[in-house]
């Protein structure tokens, strides 16, 4: 991890990019705002009745939970798919 490296190590190695979890102060602030907005949006579900076509849709927090899980599922699906269909970048040139 980047933040656990000694500070005098030159930042030349690209290998740790993927696991670079350090966030800029701006990104941290933005994330906090996002969490705040999410909480408000979630709470609104208990104030406003969303009229939907189905009972499931009208359940409180349906869209919040579905959106969150769907995003994780899409990413997970991509990772699983990668195992089967990812080839070297020169695949068609060989």
């Amino acid at each position: 991890m980047k933040h656990s490296e000694p500070s005098d190590t030159p930042d030349t190695n690209d290998a740790h990019d993927a696991h670079d979890t350090t966030m800029s102060p701006f990104a941290k602030k933005l994330s906090l705002w996002l969490v705040g907005i999410s909480v408000v949006l979630g709470l609104l579900d208990f104030v406003i009745h969303r009229h939907g076509y189905s009972k499931i849709e009208e359940m409180p927090l349906f869209f919040a939970v579905f959106g969150f899980l769907a995003f994780l599922a899409v990413v997970a699906g991509g990772v699983i798919l990668r195992v089967f269909i990812s080839r070297s970048k020169d695949y068609y040139d060989e």
């Binding site: 949006l41 406003i48 969303r50 919040a64 969150f68």
Partner: peptide, 24 residues
Amino acid sequence: GHVLGEFQLLIFAILAFVLLMARG
């Protein structure tokens, strides 16, 4: 209801992204 539902879907999906990024 529709506007609220859409916002919830999208904002919570972004929340999932931020979570994945923060956790590496």
